[in-house]
Amino acid sequence: ISAEFTLRMQTFIPPVANPAKHFLAPWAKKIGKASKGRIEVKPFWAMALGGKAPQLIDQVRDGVVDIVWTLPGFTAGRMPRVEVFELPFVHRDAVSTTMALQEFRETHLVEEMKDYHVLLAHAHAGAMFMTTRPVMKMEDLKGMTLRGHNRIGVWFLQSLGTAGIATPLGRIPSMLSKGVIQGSLLPFEISPAVKMHELTSYFTQLSGDQKRISTAVFTFMMNKKSYAKLPPDLKKVIDDNSGWHIARKTGITWEKIEKPGEKVMRSKSKNHFNTINMAETNRIKAASKKVLSRWFETVKKAGVDGPALLSDARGLIEKYSN
Protein backbone atom coordinates (compact mmCIF):
# COMPACT_ATOMS: atom_id res chain seq x y z
CA ILE A 1 0.00 0.00 0.00
CA SER A 2 1.42 3.36 -0.88
CA ALA A 3 1.39 6.27 1.53
CA GLU A 4 -1.01 9.20 1.28
CA PHE A 5 1.90 11.62 1.32
CA THR A 6 5.34 10.91 0.00
CA LEU A 7 8.00 13.37 1.12
CA ARG A 8 11.31 13.44 -0.75
CA MET A 9 14.20 14.16 1.58
CA GLN A 10 17.48 15.07 -0.11
CA THR A 11 20.91 15.64 1.41
CA PHE A 12 24.53 15.76 0.35
CA ILE A 13 25.92 13.02 2.61
CA PRO A 14 26.08 9.32 1.65
CA PRO A 15 23.89 6.81 3.54
CA VAL A 16 26.90 5.41 5.43
CA ALA A 17 27.74 8.75 7.09
CA ASN A 18 26.98 9.01 10.82
CA PRO A 19 24.31 11.75 10.55
CA ALA A 20 22.50 9.64 7.95
CA LYS A 21 22.62 6.47 10.03
CA HIS A 22 21.89 8.00 13.44
CA PHE A 23 19.62 10.91 12.66
CA LEU A 24 18.08 11.23 9.18
CA ALA A 25 17.20 7.61 8.38
CA PRO A 26 15.74 6.97 11.87
CA TRP A 27 13.78 10.24 11.63
CA ALA A 28 12.27 9.17 8.30
CA LYS A 29 11.31 5.81 9.77
CA LYS A 30 9.81 7.42 12.85
CA ILE A 31 7.57 9.68 10.78
CA GLY A 32 6.32 6.66 8.88
CA LYS A 33 5.53 4.83 12.08
CA ALA A 34 3.98 7.78 13.91
CA SER A 35 1.73 8.52 10.93
CA LYS A 36 0.78 4.85 10.68
CA GLY A 37 2.21 4.69 7.20
CA ARG A 38 0.25 7.65 5.88
CA ILE A 39 3.45 9.61 5.36
CA GLU A 40 6.46 8.07 3.67
CA VAL A 41 9.70 10.03 3.95
CA LYS A 42 11.94 8.85 1.12
CA PRO A 43 15.59 9.69 1.64
CA PHE A 44 17.79 10.55 -1.35
CA TRP A 45 21.46 10.54 -0.39
CA ALA A 46 24.45 12.21 -2.01
CA MET A 47 22.35 14.59 -4.13
CA ALA A 48 20.70 11.75 -6.04
CA LEU A 49 17.93 14.10 -7.15
CA GLY A 50 20.36 16.49 -8.77
CA GLY A 51 22.22 19.67 -7.94
CA LYS A 52 25.12 20.41 -5.65
CA ALA A 53 25.05 20.94 -1.89
CA PRO A 54 24.74 24.77 -2.03
CA GLN A 55 21.55 24.35 -4.08
CA LEU A 56 19.74 22.40 -1.33
CA ILE A 57 18.48 25.53 0.38
CA ASP A 58 16.72 26.73 -2.77
CA GLN A 59 15.50 23.24 -3.58
CA VAL A 60 13.52 23.07 -0.37
CA ARG A 61 12.29 26.64 -0.62
CA ASP A 62 11.00 26.09 -4.16
CA GLY A 63 9.62 22.62 -3.55
CA VAL A 64 12.06 20.79 -5.83
CA VAL A 65 12.22 18.42 -2.86
CA ASP A 66 10.18 18.39 0.35
CA ILE A 67 12.86 18.12 3.02
CA VAL A 68 16.59 18.88 3.10
CA TRP A 69 19.37 18.59 5.63
CA THR A 70 22.07 21.15 4.89
CA LEU A 71 24.37 23.79 6.37
CA PRO A 72 23.93 27.56 6.12
CA GLY A 73 27.73 27.60 5.80
CA PHE A 74 27.38 26.39 2.20
CA THR A 75 25.72 29.64 1.20
CA ALA A 76 27.65 32.46 2.83
CA GLY A 77 25.68 35.63 3.44
CA ARG A 78 22.21 34.08 3.29
CA MET A 79 21.60 33.43 6.98
CA PRO A 80 24.08 35.80 8.61
CA ARG A 81 22.44 35.69 12.06
CA VAL A 82 22.88 31.92 12.39
CA GLU A 83 26.63 32.41 12.11
CA VAL A 84 26.80 33.85 15.60
CA PHE A 85 26.78 30.27 16.94
CA GLU A 86 29.72 29.38 14.71
CA LEU A 87 31.96 32.15 16.08
CA PRO A 88 34.94 30.86 18.05
CA PHE A 89 34.34 30.10 21.74
CA VAL A 90 30.61 30.72 21.70
CA HIS A 91 29.80 27.00 21.58
CA ARG A 92 30.23 24.60 24.50
CA ASP A 93 28.57 21.33 23.51
CA ALA A 94 26.02 20.02 21.00
CA VAL A 95 23.16 19.88 23.52
CA SER A 96 23.28 23.43 24.87
CA THR A 97 23.92 25.02 21.45
CA THR A 98 21.11 23.03 19.85
CA MET A 99 18.71 24.02 22.65
CA ALA A 100 19.85 27.64 22.45
CA LEU A 101 19.28 27.60 18.69
CA GLN A 102 15.59 26.73 19.18
CA GLU A 103 14.97 29.78 21.36
CA PHE A 104 17.19 31.97 19.20
CA ARG A 105 15.12 30.95 16.19
CA GLU A 106 11.97 32.25 17.80
CA THR A 107 13.54 35.57 18.76
CA HIS A 108 16.03 36.35 15.99
CA LEU A 109 15.70 34.03 13.00
CA VAL A 110 12.04 34.41 12.07
CA GLU A 111 12.79 36.82 9.23
CA GLU A 112 15.88 34.95 8.03
CA MET A 113 14.04 31.63 7.89
CA LYS A 114 10.63 32.85 6.77
CA ASP A 115 10.81 31.02 3.44
CA TYR A 116 11.18 27.59 5.05
CA HIS A 117 9.32 25.36 7.45
CA VAL A 118 12.22 24.72 9.80
CA LEU A 119 12.21 21.29 11.41
CA LEU A 120 15.37 21.80 13.39
CA ALA A 121 18.50 23.91 13.60
CA HIS A 122 21.23 22.10 15.45
CA ALA A 123 24.97 21.93 16.03
CA HIS A 124 27.74 19.36 16.22
CA ALA A 125 29.94 18.71 19.23
CA GLY A 126 32.63 21.16 18.17
CA ALA A 127 35.76 21.24 16.07
CA MET A 128 39.35 20.73 17.21
CA PHE A 129 42.71 20.88 15.47
CA MET A 130 43.56 17.72 13.54
CA THR A 131 47.02 18.25 12.13
CA THR A 132 50.11 16.53 10.77
CA ARG A 133 52.37 18.44 13.16
CA PRO A 134 52.01 18.99 16.90
CA VAL A 135 50.16 22.10 18.08
CA MET A 136 51.00 23.01 21.67
CA LYS A 137 51.18 26.76 21.34
CA MET A 138 49.99 29.44 18.92
CA GLU A 139 53.37 29.70 17.18
CA ASP A 140 53.11 26.04 16.14
CA LEU A 141 50.28 27.01 13.82
CA LYS A 142 52.34 29.51 11.84
CA GLY A 143 53.38 28.25 8.42
CA MET A 144 50.62 25.67 8.25
CA THR A 145 47.64 25.78 5.91
CA LEU A 146 44.53 24.42 7.59
CA ARG A 147 41.04 23.82 6.36
CA GLY A 148 38.05 25.43 8.03
CA HIS A 149 34.47 24.39 7.40
CA ASN A 150 33.14 27.84 6.52
CA ARG A 151 34.19 31.47 6.37
CA ILE A 152 34.16 31.89 10.16
CA GLY A 153 36.50 28.92 10.47
CA VAL A 154 38.83 30.46 7.90
CA TRP A 155 38.79 33.81 9.70
CA PHE A 156 39.61 32.05 12.97
CA LEU A 157 42.62 30.33 11.42
CA GLN A 158 43.79 33.60 9.91
CA SER A 159 43.47 35.32 13.29
CA LEU A 160 46.02 32.82 14.66
CA GLY A 161 48.47 33.57 11.87
CA THR A 162 47.86 30.40 9.91
CA ALA A 163 46.59 30.24 6.34
CA GLY A 164 42.99 29.09 6.28
CA ILE A 165 41.12 27.72 3.29
CA ALA A 166 37.50 26.66 3.05
CA THR A 167 36.83 23.55 1.00
CA PRO A 168 34.20 20.83 1.03
CA LEU A 169 34.76 17.91 3.37
CA GLY A 170 35.24 15.43 0.55
CA ARG A 171 38.38 17.15 -0.66
CA ILE A 172 40.24 16.91 2.65
CA PRO A 173 41.93 13.52 2.02
CA SER A 174 43.44 14.43 -1.34
CA MET A 175 44.54 17.86 -0.11
CA LEU A 176 46.14 16.36 2.99
CA SER A 177 47.92 13.61 1.13
CA LYS A 178 49.24 16.20 -1.31
CA GLY A 179 50.42 18.53 1.40
CA VAL A 180 48.17 21.34 0.20
CA ILE A 181 46.89 21.48 3.77
CA GLN A 182 48.43 20.20 6.99
CA GLY A 183 45.19 19.66 8.81
CA SER A 184 41.63 20.70 9.41
CA LEU A 185 39.24 21.84 12.10
CA LEU A 186 36.81 18.95 12.64
CA PRO A 187 34.80 17.06 15.24
CA PHE A 188 35.59 13.35 15.78
CA GLU A 189 32.25 12.15 14.48
CA ILE A 190 32.91 12.85 10.79
CA SER A 191 36.70 12.38 10.84
CA PRO A 192 36.76 8.65 9.95
CA ALA A 193 34.91 9.48 6.73
CA VAL A 194 37.87 11.59 5.60
CA LYS A 195 40.51 9.25 7.04
CA MET A 196 41.94 11.75 9.53
CA HIS A 197 43.35 8.84 11.59
CA GLU A 198 45.59 7.92 8.67
CA LEU A 199 46.33 11.35 7.29
CA THR A 200 46.97 13.35 10.48
CA SER A 201 48.61 12.48 13.79
CA TYR A 202 47.79 15.25 16.26
CA PHE A 203 44.33 15.75 17.71
CA THR A 204 44.37 18.83 19.86
CA GLN A 205 41.74 20.28 22.17
CA LEU A 206 41.86 23.25 24.51
CA SER A 207 41.80 23.71 28.27
CA GLY A 208 38.97 25.17 30.31
CA ASP A 209 35.24 24.86 29.86
CA GLN A 210 35.35 25.27 26.06
CA LYS A 211 37.55 22.45 24.85
CA ARG A 212 36.44 22.77 21.25
CA ILE A 213 36.97 25.84 19.08
CA SER A 214 33.59 26.28 17.47
CA THR A 215 30.70 24.40 15.93
CA ALA A 216 28.85 24.32 12.63
CA VAL A 217 25.11 24.89 12.42
CA PHE A 218 22.94 22.47 10.43
CA THR A 219 19.47 23.20 9.15
CA PHE A 220 16.83 20.51 8.71
CA MET A 221 14.03 22.13 6.75
CA MET A 222 10.79 21.35 4.99
CA ASN A 223 9.08 23.06 2.09
CA LYS A 224 6.31 25.35 3.39
CA LYS A 225 3.67 24.13 0.93
CA SER A 226 4.53 20.48 1.50
CA TYR A 227 3.88 21.11 5.17
CA ALA A 228 0.78 23.24 4.63
CA LYS A 229 -1.00 20.62 2.55
CA LEU A 230 -0.85 18.00 5.31
CA PRO A 231 -4.06 17.52 7.34
CA PRO A 232 -3.88 18.71 10.99
CA ASP A 233 -3.24 15.27 12.46
CA LEU A 234 -0.31 14.64 10.13
CA LYS A 235 1.01 18.16 10.72
CA LYS A 236 1.09 17.18 14.35
CA VAL A 237 3.17 14.12 13.55
CA ILE A 238 5.74 16.38 11.91
CA ASP A 239 5.52 18.94 14.72
CA ASP A 240 6.02 16.28 17.38
CA ASN A 241 9.21 15.31 15.60
CA SER A 242 10.73 18.72 15.14
CA GLY A 243 11.98 21.76 17.03
CA TRP A 244 11.89 21.64 20.82
CA HIS A 245 10.57 18.08 20.79
CA ILE A 246 13.74 16.64 19.32
CA ALA A 247 16.35 19.31 20.09
CA ARG A 248 17.79 17.80 23.26
CA LYS A 249 17.79 14.29 21.86
CA THR A 250 19.51 15.42 18.66
CA GLY A 251 22.14 17.29 20.66
CA ILE A 252 22.77 14.13 22.68
CA THR A 253 22.97 12.07 19.48
CA TRP A 254 25.71 14.35 18.17
CA GLU A 255 27.65 14.11 21.42
CA LYS A 256 27.23 10.33 21.30
CA ILE A 257 28.47 9.84 17.75
CA GLU A 258 31.74 11.50 18.80
CA LYS A 259 32.66 8.28 20.63
CA PRO A 260 32.87 5.87 17.67
CA GLY A 261 34.71 8.57 15.69
CA GLU A 262 37.22 9.08 18.47
CA LYS A 263 37.71 5.33 18.74
CA VAL A 264 38.74 5.13 15.10
CA MET A 265 41.17 8.03 15.59
CA ARG A 266 42.68 6.25 18.59
CA SER A 267 43.05 2.98 16.69
CA LYS A 268 46.42 4.08 15.29
CA SER A 269 49.29 4.08 17.74
CA LYS A 270 51.02 6.94 15.88
CA ASN A 271 48.24 9.34 16.85
CA HIS A 272 48.58 11.78 19.75
CA PHE A 273 45.74 13.34 21.71
CA ASN A 274 46.82 16.59 23.27
CA THR A 275 45.37 19.41 25.30
CA ILE A 276 46.76 22.91 24.92
CA ASN A 277 47.52 24.33 28.38
CA MET A 278 45.45 27.10 29.93
CA ALA A 279 47.94 29.89 29.27
CA GLU A 280 48.15 29.09 25.56
CA THR A 281 44.41 28.55 25.37
CA ASN A 282 43.93 32.06 26.68
CA ARG A 283 46.34 33.45 24.08
CA ILE A 284 44.39 31.71 21.33
CA LYS A 285 41.13 33.04 22.72
CA ALA A 286 42.54 36.54 22.88
CA ALA A 287 43.82 36.39 19.30
CA SER A 288 40.49 35.08 18.03
CA LYS A 289 38.73 38.23 19.28
CA LYS A 290 39.62 39.67 15.86
CA VAL A 291 37.13 37.24 14.33
CA LEU A 292 34.30 38.76 16.34
CA SER A 293 35.03 42.31 15.21
CA ARG A 294 35.45 41.11 11.63
CA TRP A 295 32.09 39.38 11.79
CA PHE A 296 30.44 42.45 13.39
CA GLU A 297 31.74 44.57 10.51
CA THR A 298 30.59 42.11 7.86
CA VAL A 299 27.04 41.60 9.11
CA LYS A 300 26.60 45.29 9.87
CA LYS A 301 26.29 45.78 6.10
CA ALA A 302 23.26 43.51 6.19
CA GLY A 303 21.75 45.57 9.01
CA VAL A 304 22.55 43.03 11.71
CA ASP A 305 23.52 44.14 15.22
CA GLY A 306 26.33 41.65 15.79
CA PRO A 307 27.29 42.51 19.41
CA ALA A 308 23.67 42.27 20.59
CA LEU A 309 23.18 38.90 18.87
CA LEU A 310 26.41 37.60 20.35
CA SER A 311 25.45 38.49 23.89
CA ASP A 312 22.01 36.90 23.39
CA ALA A 313 23.55 33.72 21.98
CA ARG A 314 26.01 33.50 24.86
CA GLY A 315 23.21 34.05 27.36
CA LEU A 316 21.12 31.28 25.83
CA ILE A 317 23.98 28.80 25.81
CA GLU A 318 24.65 29.65 29.45
CA LYS A 319 20.96 29.12 30.22
CA TYR A 320 20.82 25.67 28.58
CA SER A 321 24.16 24.52 29.91
CA ASN A 322 22.60 23.84 33.29
Partner: peptide
Protein backbone atom coordinates in the same frame (compact mmCIF):
# COMPACT_ATOMS: atom_id res chain seq x y z
CA UNK B 1 17.38 34.94 -6.26
CA UNK B 2 21.06 35.02 -5.39
CA UNK B 3 21.09 38.82 -5.65
CA UNK B 4 18.17 39.15 -3.26
CA UNK B 5 19.69 36.73 -0.79
CA UNK B 6 23.11 38.36 -1.01
CA UNK B 7 24.85 35.01 -1.33
CA UNK B 8 28.63 35.23 -1.67
CA UNK B 9 31.58 32.88 -2.05
CA UNK B 10 33.06 31.78 1.26
CA UNK B 11 36.54 33.26 1.62
CA UNK B 12 36.68 36.13 -0.85
CA UNK B 13 33.01 37.09 -0.39
Amino acid sequence: DLYNYGETTGVLA
